[in-house]
């Protein structure tokens, strides 16, 4: 079974799926908190338009989970606010 890690834990995926699809399939509808109210967000438009599903992938913040292909061994982390707070 192919997996990537999400906030340290394994998430299984089927090759061909996006990071976002794998997270939804794993029962996680949210993986980001917003800048102002800290509200949880996940996929909304699913096609790269809305930027609600932003996530950090292998250290790169602001990646659209609905577009990024899941790869074995990828490190995916929750994004808080702009994704740059801790720089």
């Amino acid at each position: 079974m192919s997996t990537f890690t999400f906030d340290g834990g394994p998430v299984p995926f089927r090759p061909g799926q996006t990071v976002g699809a794998a997270l939804v399939a794993a029962g996680r509808p949210a993986w980001r908190t917003t800048r102002v109210s800290g509200s949880p967000r996940g996929i909304f438009c699913g096609i790269g338009i809305c930027f609600d599903c932003l996530v950090t992938v292998d250290g790169e913040p602001n990646q659209r989970a609905c577009l990024v292909r899941a790869e074995p061994g990828q490190t995916v982390t929750t994004q808080e606010g702009t994704g740059h707070e801790h720089d």
């Binding site: 799926q17 939804v24 399939a25 509808p29 909304f44």
Partner: peptide, 23 residues
């Protein structure tokens, strides 16, 4: 509408067609 799990119908369809995932 900003709660996780609320999506556009196109978003649901993209998850189905490209990911084989029912949201």
């Amino acid at each position: 509408w900003d709660l996780p799990g609320v999506m556009t119908v196109g978003g649901l369809q993209a998850l189905l067609k490209a990911g084989g995932v029912a949201a």
